[in-house]
Amino acid sequence: MARNLLVMLGLLAGCYGFNFVMAEFIEVVYVDYINLCGLAIILAVGLNVINGLAGQFSLGHAGFMSVGAFAGAYASIMLTYGVIESGPLSFVSMGSFLLCLALSGLSAAAVGALVGAPTLRLKGDYLAIATLGFAEITRIVLTAQDAIGGPTGLKRIPKMPLLPGSEKWDGGTSTFWIYAFVCLVILLSVNLQRSTFGRALICVRENELAAETMGVRASRMKIMAFVYGAFFAGIAGCLYAHYQHSVRPDDFTTVRSIEVVVMLVLGGLGSLTGAVVGAVIVTLLPQFLRPLEESLGLSGLSMVVYAALLLLMMLFRPQGIFGQRELSLKLLRRLVPGGGKESRP
């Protein structure tokens, strides 16, 4: 525990430094890419616990994200300006921001529990369709709420709070906040995979009946997985809303849920490293394809490339880039010729 806290503090300091290096030396476009990658990583690592570890194929991650985004954005606007109307953007205070993050994480987690509980009885493709249905219902319900702007959503969401020493920079502190949560979710998930809970989830994935026989409470584990994944999706939603300064219900369509699944499948379902790598690839790919798309006048090219990648992956390497392996010193040692001393059992 103490060790983890220390690691997290170190990582936070790293993120703090990273933020200013980026704001100072890197072009704004690339800063944007890096921030988007961070958001995608939070989503993918969270979903990996549901889809990868627990083996519950959920296709509704955008739904959880939207709940967090709207809860956090609404709270933030109310705490900062007190009313929803147009005006110049200002910074949300640190305390309010942390409150908003907690609120969005918890509200999404509550929805996760709500979704997890009834859909537990479903397996495989039925579960996929049911979660997809839940996400769509969420989107439709959000669209119908006039208090949060209806179909046009919320605008003028404040900027993420300043940090000590960041006042003189113009670049904002989004990178710090996003990557702080990237570090948190990765650290937690690494620990989770090695914990009793993580092993119980894997157990449920491999054989639910056998897991039950061994005393693993499968239903409870599955709900916990949904709560965990949804919590971080909510956080990612809140960060996304503050980063973009506006959210619409249509930002969270089925396509976005599928995008997160593609990240996992590409990297390897069940591998944390895979989730991170997949998130980065899927986020950067369309950015680099965009110039090509525009010069050829072919809209939809990046989605076609996604789809093709997904198909080729399934046909030729269904386990994804990493399979269920993780990037570790052991794996690196094996990759170096002659370095792999230990033989696999």
């Binding site: 499948v265 809209s299 789809a307 997904l310």
Partner: peptide, 21 residues
């Protein structure tokens, strides 16, 4: 059952956005 499901999603995306192109 998972691999064909994901493949089906892939084919669907391919047709939709290929159609757009």
């Amino acid at each position: 059952r998972l691999a064909p499901l994901i493949t089906a999603i892939g084919v669907s995306l391919l047709l939709e956005y290929g159609g757009q192109m």
